[in-house]
Computed example of a mutant assay.
Amino acid sequence: MSVDVLFYHLLHQPLESALPKLLLKCLERDWKVVVQTGTPERCAALDAHLWTFSGDSFLPHGTREDGYAELQPVYLTDGPDNPNGAEVRFLIDRATPPPLQGYQRAVYMFDGNDPDALADARALWKTVKAEGFNLTYWQQTDSGGWERKA
């Protein structure tokens, strides 16, 4: 089975607003998810944020420190691990992708207002395309939704 690799170009809302919505969609589909951050500090900050991002809901998730990694519907890490057997891998903060075989989807989210992040996303697009993955590119709309561009 080929992996679908989705690029999400953040323009108008920060990752902290966009990511929880996408994670909730994955959980609605009964997909386990692993979110790979660029640093341990970002992983800890995201962990705190996902408990409080909304006044009326939260995202069930865990980290290595929480234990029971295999039971977490959303697992946060700063490394290549996948202890919950996730079907979907999110890569944020310019995290280095591990091998993507074995996932149904890989989602690379990048800040379009950061020239370095944009350059990294373009380079990763070329690499992933050359490896033969199915690619789609989504650009954030003014309202925070997504429009497919490629």
Rank of each mutant, 00 (worst) to 15 (best):
P115S: 03
P98E: 12
D78F: 13
D78R: 01
D81A: 12
E87N: 00
E65A: 14
H49Y: 11
D47A: 06
G102P: 05
G62V: 04
Y68A: 12
R105P: 04
A86F: 10
P115D: 09
M109T: 02
V88K: 01
P99S: 14
D78P: 03
H49L: 14
A45I: 08
W51G: 01
C43I: 06
G67A: 04
C43H: 06
T96I: 14
N82F: 09
P60M: 01
D56T: 02
S57A: 11
S54G: 00
A69H: 05
E87Y: 02
R89Q: 12
T77N: 09
G67I: 01
A69Y: 01
L100F: 06
Y103V: 06
F53A: 01
A106C: 14
F110L: 09
G67E: 07
L91A: 09
G67S: 05
A45Q: 13
V107L: 07
Q104V: 00
G102F: 09
D47L: 06
L91Q: 06
R89S: 02
H61T: 12
D66F: 09
R105M: 03
W51F: 08
P99A: 15
A106R: 06
Q72T: 00
S57R: 13
N113S: 02
G79F: 01
P73W: 05
Y75T: 10
T77D: 09
Q72R: 08
P115W: 13
D78S: 15
L91E: 07
F58W: 06
L50D: 04
G79C: 05
G79T: 14
L59V: 14
A95Y: 13
D111S: 09
L76G: 11
L100A: 13
L91M: 10
T77Q: 08
E65H: 07
C43Y: 00
G55T: 02
V74K: 13
N82M: 07
N84S: 03
G67N: 06
I92C: 12
R89G: 03
Y68C: 03
D47T: 00
D114V: 15
W51N: 04
V74I: 15
L91D: 08
H49R: 14
C43Q: 15
F90C: 07
W51K: 01
R94D: 15
A86C: 05
